[in-house]
Write a protein that binds this DNA or RNA. Structure first.
Lengths: 135, 135
DNA sequence: ATAACATCCGTACTATGGTACGGAGTCAAG
DNA sequence: CTTGACTCCGTACCATAGTACGGATGTTAT
């Protein structure tokens, strides 16, 4: 159970301190009690493994294309009972990912054609707009 | 050579009129002369096939992950002589796309596991954070 | 115990890619 | 010859996801 400060948490999650604080403001990460009690200027907050896991989850879910709002919902679901909702969100995202992957693959093919067309040693402009035309 | 208004151009490109105007402001699309001459309140601008192709290129390049700034550069290159630069931009984007596609594929696999874990009829919370953990 | 550095927190600012508003001008149909 | 739809243009506003600032406070090493 490595306890750390906000900078350590940020490092573990591969983000900046300000980003952690931003996620706290958005309600995606908790803000642990300051050790010196509440109201007064109470000391430095400590973070644990759960926070690190949670932060890493946020980043991973982002690469999956979830928005921070959706990630908030997923985090709420993680604690809740609504398996059906979780299942639905996952399915929806898979469909969106499949579309996106297909789109990127098509774009890749166009770029390959473009690189090919512009890669020759012959002079003059290469038809960039046209290279994307024949999709 | 179908001549059209800004609304027609927008329709052909699958965007809104305001988006066309935004691209004009960004310098990605030209702003044709108003027919009634310059200074006075001169009439309605007309757009042609070249504009439509250019707009469609912008949208396609966006799906390839180019930013609007980069697209501006590509459009400039389309008219220019710098084949090498065009080739470089295309290659760079292909590398980025390959990374992105791999990332999305990994995310898809995680989501499939998640959907599976939460899809069973058993009760209780499903471990959403954990489903993404074992990347 | 003091310097150096980190944390805390509110607030403000940034980048990207649009979207909306409102008043004035233009144009085609009835 | 007016009505209604569309255009023009500047300006303002929006969502998303951060990033920066700066003063007060807390912690640690010398």
């Amino acid at each position: 159970m490595k306890e750390t400060t906000i900078a350590g948490l940020a490092r573990e999650g591969g983000v900046g301190v300000e980003t952690v604080r931003y996620y706290q403001r958005r309600g995606l990460l908790g803000t642990p009690q300051r050790p010196g009690g509440v109201g007064l200027g109470g000391g430095i907050r400590r973070y644990g493994d759960d926070d690190i896991r949670r932060l890493r989850f946020i980043r991973t879910a982002q690469t999956a294309g979830f928005t921070l709002d959706e990630i908030g919902e997923l985090l709420a679901l993680d604690a809740g009972e609504d398996r059906h909702r979780a299942h639905t969100l996952a399915r929806e995202r898979i469909v969106a990912l499949d579309e996106k992957i297909a789109e990127l693959s098509a774009a890749r093919a166009s770029l390959l054609r473009l690189a090919d067309a512009c890669g020759s040693t012959s002079k003059g402009p290469c038809p960039i707009i046209t290279a994307f035309d024949l999709e």
